[in-house]
């Protein structure tokens, strides 16, 4: 992986002339986790898709730049709420999907190493249908890691999981994605408070920064500062609604 750059998005978006979000400036610090928190329909997924270079259905007026000025879309790995696993392909084939789609050979040793790190070594030949929801999301995480990109964009990645699986996945992801520039889009104040080196709340009026708790990421679920931060984030979301 090349050195993770910082990313800045500056501008506004509208859908058929109706503003989606007001002019804003969002900065993702290099090698850190930024949590973008917001309610439904405020355009937080649009922000993430714009950085990915994916079609959004909104027209964006502004710029998206990396601190090293190199293009961004080819340096991102993307993970969504839906695990997006191919049901007909084995766990291994799903993890090396990126290489197969680019016509490259996937490094078998690295694949085995990543499988072991997400705790799925015994499941390499299984089809996704034979796995639990948490295991499937771990395969998706392994696929993201296999891409070995400096910028990671996570769109509500854990919101479909049950509470205990979600907490475990947050810790695993925080550990495995260390050192990369990560943007997590979420509607869950608890997730933002646990994972964000930087926490940004998106409302129709624009973005506001929220000071993150002092503890290192991933913060313990029972850390008082983190719980206070979570409450503060919830308050801001409710004020904006």
């Amino acid at each position: 992986m090349s050195r993770a750059p910082g990313v800045t998005l500056e501008g506004s978006a509208s859908i058929d002339g109706a503003p989606l979000f007001a002019p804003l400036r969002l900065t993702l610090p290099a090698g850190r986790w930024t949590c973008l928190l917001g309610g439904s329909g405020v355009g937080k997924s649009t922000v993430l898709r714009l950085i990915c270079g994916l079609p959004t259905g909104a027209s964006f007026d502004g710029t998206i730049t990396a601190t090293d000025t190199r293009p961004i879309p080819e340096r991102v790995a993307y993970m969504a709420q839906d695990d997006l696993l191919l049901p007909w392909a084995s766990v291994t084939d799903n993890i090396r999907l990126g290489a197969r789609l680019r016509g490259q050979r996937a490094d078998a040793d690295r694949l085995a190493h990543i499988l072991a790190r997400v705790g799925l070594s015994g499941h390499a030949q299984k089809k996704p249908g034979a796995l639990s929801g948490g295991q499937r999301q771990r395969v998706a995480l392994a696929r993201t890691l296999m891409e070995d990109k400096p910028i990671i964009l996570l769109d509500e990645p854990f919101s479909a999981l049950d509470a205990q699986t979600r907490a475990a996945m947050q810790e695993l992801a925080a550990d495995l994605l260390q050192g990369r520039t990560v943007l997590v889009v979420t509607h869950d104040p608890a997730e933002a408070a646990r994972l964000g080196h930087a926490i940004v709340v998106l409302t129709p009026k624009g973005v506001t920064d929220c000071p993150p708790p002092a503890a290192p990421v991933p913060r313990p679920v029972d850390d008082l500062d983190t719980l206070r931060c979570q409450a503060e984030l919830l308050r801001r979301l409710r004020d904006a609604a």
Partner: peptide
């Protein structure tokens, strides 16, 4: 749609 998005971020042909 999600699978096509994923393929696009993977720079697939």
């Amino acid at each position: 749609r999600g699978l096509l998005d994923l393929a696009q971020t993977m720079q697939a042909g």
